[in-house]
Design a protein around this nucleic acid. Structure first.
Lengths: 132, 132
DNA sequence: GTAGTCCTTCCAGTCGCTGGAAGGTCAAGG
DNA sequence: CCTTGACCTTCCAGCGACTGGAAGGACTAC
């Protein structure tokens, strides 16, 4: 399986797959002509990586997940811990964005949005001195 | 006002302020000894930038907001449009994270999390073949 | 004079790719 | 046999928005 087919099968761009090899996430075999040759195992790892990345796991997380995935003796507790940490990050990020949204939408609602130069968004961004 | 005082006043690291000068967001005067000398106007711009960045505006957004802020003839409609676009991005990002959270927390709940090797999170990440 | 804190510039690294150049390989068609 | 075009290879550079560190100059206090 050449890189293009591996890309189509996994949904990852070929460039990304080469990058993943460079950083040691996958190690495809090489054909006589120097082309990468992906077997079932490496192709499956690419799919695994694509899914884990789409769930927001960092490359380092993926490295850990992959070694757990490859390890027949792995403990599911390790995997669960990683996933829970990731869940915590997601919650924190959502809370942060919600707070941002409140502030910004308040600003937007207070802005008349016509062609007058007076704008509460800018006044607010200018800080205390700007408002004084 | 030297860079350290400007940093304390704005809440931005000195490194970041130098970077902002490099990319043309601020243009502090220079003292005879070559030190940056921030006047009230440049210091206010730094505060403005710190607040806009903390609301998640990109550097390019900040550049636009800053020119509107500096422009006495600016139309508040332009500012409102930028803020609304940003609000849309925030909403999209929140929705994306919520979806991720559903998937991941489902996985976490289905994982028994003990030392048995069988883990539904990995099975799921492995894809259809892994489940078959 | 010297210790310590500030300031300067420049270079390199972060993360996870992404784009592009230069060149090798292969299968199909004439 | 030759060409076309799609594929493959490596390497180098760049994105955004900083951040760290080295090397060296400037200033303040004792």
């Amino acid at each position: 399986m050449n890189i293009k087919d591996a890309a189509e099968a996994s949904g990852l761009p070929a460039k990304t797959i080469r990058y993943y090899e460079e950083i040691g996430l996958v190690s495809p075999a090489r054909a006589a002509n120097g082309y990468r040759d992906f077997g079932a195992r490496e192709a499956a790892k690419l799919g695994f990586l694509a899914r884990a990345r789409s769930l927001g796991f960092s490359i380092d997380d993926c490295r850990a997940l992959l070694s757990l995935y490859e390890d027949r003796e792995r403990a599911s507790a390790d995997v669960k811990r990683l996933a829970e940490e990731r869940l915590g990050e997601i919650d924190r990020k959502i809370a942060e964005l919600e707070a941002l949204k409140v502030t910004l939408s308040d600003l937007v609602h207070r802005c008349h949005g016509d062609d007058r130069p007076d704008c509460p968004i800018l006044t607010d961004l200018a800080g205390p001195e700007g408002r004084a």
